[in-house]
Design a protein around this nucleic acid. Structure first.
Length: 489
DNA sequence: TTTTGAGTTGTTCGA
DNA sequence: GTCGAACAACTCAAA
């Protein structure tokens, strides 16, 4: 337990870049003096941040720092191995309490546990809190006491443990920081060198995103006033804004799932929500999938690198660097797949339905190891999240917990015809096909020559032919997946 | 211990 | 055009 009124506290920001509903910050703010710190961690066993995440982090830290200063506080920025830095600065700044919010990856938990014991050996109190999840992984168990590995029973059991707790308010003022010695190694945000320069591939991102707590609240309220109505049906439509787009904000902890939950529920109870109960349940279930991914990461720490189902270790993945490159660049010849990958490159985001389509294509049509797709998403997604990214790729591959069956192979043009019937999504991100009529835009290779000519499309020149024929690829994938089935085959 | 029912997101084929 | 069945068999969770 922390001292009743610590003289001097340190709050360590990690995946909680916000002031509202920040229990660790709230616990620290009763101190007479408060230092808040963010560390660009260079710990050897941590996965390096992806490029898109770095861009977001820069913007988010700028927003957070301004918010803290507006309340009389100070955000210190440092770089290095957190296992050394935290105990050192806690000592040098004479702190008697250090607080943080928990993270759930194996390396991070080991690190935090080591820091906690180091601090306590120095007589400094250290305490972790839950800021990132509705239900912490160890609180949701089967009747037998173990982790749940199927979503539906997991989500049922989680909700039976009780309603999510309400969010904490933002502190209106923060205790002033003590004098920071110059030798402590404080950096300016720009020193972290998080923004891309040559070339600046992130130049377009600001058009779509406002990183930081204020931007998160704007997205939340826009969702509650708009797309949550009809969410159950529309969430599969990439051709208009049909989802919350809160994922990058959640990935950096600029908003908590408790805040989202409470805002939706409050609007619903007040009769201000023009959405059906089914819409709300569907949306809550998506938060539930995020919880489930974290639950899996906590109980099975290797999910980002190892097949959850070991029989997939024998899968005949193909070494196909040209195929991988065509996929990454959005040049597979399948408009829906290419639109998705170009949306990712241009905006740092991809609609969830399209993520499934492009992932299925990489894994099943090209038979490229899901880890290569996971790595690309890790580098390019603004919402790259160690739990969601790994669990979702394994779900598509069929190698994960509660995964898609092997014979579920998305038809890359059928999905387009179904969920982007007018081709608006394709036209937005694959402009060289924009003049094709609706009924040919998802299968340009099958369009009559005069239609292609009129639309200015020359296959193999202005837009690629399919790099693999769907029917051939499908049969090949079915055979490969059958070969690792546990049956007698 | 054994049994039973269920399991995010799909596609294809044939009636 | 629409609809149901097949696509495998397994694992999980609970009774």
């Amino acid at each position: 337990m922390p001292p009743p009124t610590p003289a001097r506290a340190l709050h360590w920001f990690r995946v909680d870049l916000r002031l509202i509903d920040n229990p660790a910050l709230t616990a620290a703010q009763s101190a007479d003096a408060l230092v808040t710190v963010f560390i660009d961690e260079t710990n050897a066993d941590f996965r390096p941040r992806g490029g898109a995440s770095k861009w977001w982090l820069h913007k988010s830290l700028a927003a957070l720092s301004a918010q803290i200063e507006a309340r009389g506080g100070k955000l210190l920025i440092l770089r290095g191995d957190s296992r050394k830095i935290i105990p050192r600065i806690a000592r040098e700044l004479s702190c008697d309490l250090v607080t943080w919010n928990r993270r759930y990856g194996a390396a991070e938990r080991t690190c935090d546990a080591a820091i906690k014991s180091a601090l306590r050996e120095d007589g400094i109190e250290a305490e972790g809190f839950n800021a990132g999840l509705l239900y912490e992984p160890w609180t949701v168990t089967s009747k037998a006491g173990g982790p749940l590995r199927v979503f539906t029973p997991f989500w049922k059991a989680a909700r039976e443990t009780g309603a999510p707790s309400p969010p904490l308010p933002s502190p209106q003022t923060l205790p002033a920081a003590p004098e920071i010695p110059t030798g402590i190694g404080a950096l300016a945000l720009d020193d972290l060198d998080l923004l891309p320069r040559k070339p600046d591939w992130a130049a377009g991102f600001s058009e779509y995103w406002q990183p930081g707590e204020a931007g998160a609240l704007i997205k939340l309220h826009a969702f509650i006033e708009g797309p949550i109505k009809g969410y159950a049906e529309n969430r599969d439509r990439p051709d208009f804004i049909s989802t919350s787009r809160l994922s990058p904000h959640l990935a950096f902890g600029e908003i908590s799932p408790r805040q989202i939950w409470q805002a939706v529920e409050t609007a619903q109870l007040a009769g201000e929500l023009d959405a059906s109960a089914r819409d709300v349940e569907k949306f809550f279930a998506e938060l539930g999938w995020r919880e489930f991914s974290h639950h899996l990461l906590f109980h099975y720490p290797d999910i980002a690198t190892q097949n959850y189902q070991p029989r997939f270790d024998a899968f005949p993945w193909q070494d196909n660097p040209e195929g991988l490159k065509a996929w990454q660049r959005g040049l597979t010849g399948y408009p829906m797949v290419d639109a998705g990958l170009r949306e990712l490159w241009q905006t740092g985001f991809m609609h969830n339905r399209v993520r499934m389509i492009v992932a299925s294509f990489l894994i099943k049509h090209l038979m490229i190891d899901w880890r290569q797709g996971e790595a690309w998403f890790w580098d390019t997604l603004l919402d790259a999240d160690p739990a969601n990214n790994a669990a979702s790729w394994q779900w598509v591959a069929g190698s994960g917990a509660d995964a898609a069956p092997y014979f579920r192979i998305f038809n890359p043009f059928g999905q387009g015809e179904k969920f982007d019937a007018k081709g608006e999504y394709v036209r937005r991100f694959v402009p060289e096909l924009a003049n094709l009529p609706d009924d040919h835009i998802h299968q340009p290779w099958a369009a009559p020559p005069h239609i292609l000519a009129r639309a200015g499309v020359r296959l193999g020149t202005t837009y690629p032919r399919p790099i693999v024929a769907h029917e051939v690829a499908r049969e090949r994938a079915l055979a490969a997946f059958k070969s690792i089935s546990t049956g007698t085959a």
